[in-house]
Design a protein around this nucleic acid. Structure first.
Lengths: 126, 126
DNA sequence: CTAGGTGCAAAGCGTTTGCTCGGGG
DNA sequence: CCCCGAGCAAACGCTTTGCACCTAG
């Protein structure tokens, strides 16, 4: 992968903002430093970085994809009230893949878990 | 919810084809019996049925949403080679929600797990 | 020099929506 | 008879892509 200033900025932005930004969030953030960057470039590079395992693409129900710079095994909770995405570490998946393989012959490459509910802050509000 | 012939056909179609069909799959299948039904009607009813808990909408990475008529707790495996979606039952999630609540204060309403990998049939091929 | 990246704009694709007409209750 | 639902087509939102120009190696 050939170096580009734009890609560096995009990657840095995702890393620096652990808010699981959408492509459009990244676009706004990067645009503050580089007003001529295009949305197409942001999409192209986010996908490129995801394909190369440098960041992760999260598929969201009913909304835009989000991107995550954390590479260690963890999962996500979406608050259906405020829309924030939280990280969660759980050791439930320790020998998950082995169990599945033994049971079904399915060879797991990755898994995405999305937990939906109401976060602590939002449930306080009521 | 007022009765409609179309909605009945749509629901029956999803139930009768446990292939986790997309809206467009359902459209094709229903169209065979009712050639004048519109795609908009299929979308409207699938969403309506999902909102009423009669079926479940599955968000897929990089593809159309799929619909599932099974309501019992189970999860899905997507074969990234052939595109089929398999069901999988796992008891890993038994007191999952309680753990999360205790740990984070997040009140879980639902969770969607998507396992990606290569299915038994596809790995045989190689 | 040249392969690959950028910016821009248009196209693509899945999904939703406004409108008018039809059918259930 | 009233109102929700259907059919149709246009609109929408997110994402991808074709093209001409630019830049790293």
């Amino acid at each position: 992968m050939k170096y580009s200033k734009q890609r560096e900025m995009i990657q840095d932005t995702v890393m620096a903002h652990p808010i699981h930004p959408t492509a459009d969030d990244v676009y706004s953030l990067v645009r503050a430093k580089n007003p001529t960057i295009s949305l197409g470039t942001v999409y192209r590079n986010l996908n490129l970085l995801a394909e190369n395992g440098i960041l992760t693409k999260l598929t969201m129900p009913g909304g835009s994809d989000r991107f995550d710079g954390r590479l260690d095994e963890h999962y996500h909770m979406l608050c259906t009230h405020c829309g924030k995405v939280y990280d969660v570490e759980l050791d439930i998946f320790r020998d998950f893949d082995r169990q599945i393989r033994a049971k079904t012959g399915f060879c797991v490459s990755r898994h995405q878990l999305l937990i939906e509910g109401i976060c602590k802050e939002c449930s306080k509000e009521k």
